[in-house]
Amino acid sequence: MKRSARDIILLISMLAIAAGWYALSRDTSANAVGAIVWIDGFRSARLSLEQADEFTFERGGDINVVRIENGTARIVSANCPGGDCTRQRAISRAGELIVCVPHKLMITLESVPAFDTVAR
C-alpha cells in the first residue's frame, strides 16, 4: 500500500516536472520568427523569416549570402575555404544555428518578436 502511494506521488511529480519543463522550454522548440546574423561576435542584423529574401554580408572580402525562404534561413553561397557553411541544412527552430568559422559569421534563430510596436 505504501509502495503504491509512493509510486503515484512519483508519477504525478514526474508528469508535473515534464509539464513544467515543457512550459519553460517551449520557446526554444518554437518556430523562429527572426534570424540574427553575428559577425565577429557582434550582432550585425536581424532578418525576418516571414518574408523570402536574400542578403549578402560582405566584410573585408569575406562574403556570405543568406537566403530566407519558407520560414527558414541558410547560407546559399560563400567564398570561405571549403564552403562548409553552405552545406549546413536550413534552420527554422529557435535555438538552431549555422556557423561559418573562417568568416567568424554565425546565424542564430529566435522566436521572440523583433519589437513590441513600431513608430511611424
Partner: peptide
C-alpha cells in the same frame, strides 16, 4: 524513501506553479 518522495513532490509543486505562471 520518504525524503526522496518529499523532494520530488516539492519539485512537482514548483513545476506546477511554473506551468500556472507561464499560462
Amino acid at each position: 524513501t520518504p525524503l526522496a518522495a518529499r523532494t520530488i513532490l516539492l519539485f512537482g509543486i514548483a513545476a506546477l506553479l511554473c506551468v500556472a505562471c507561464a499560462s
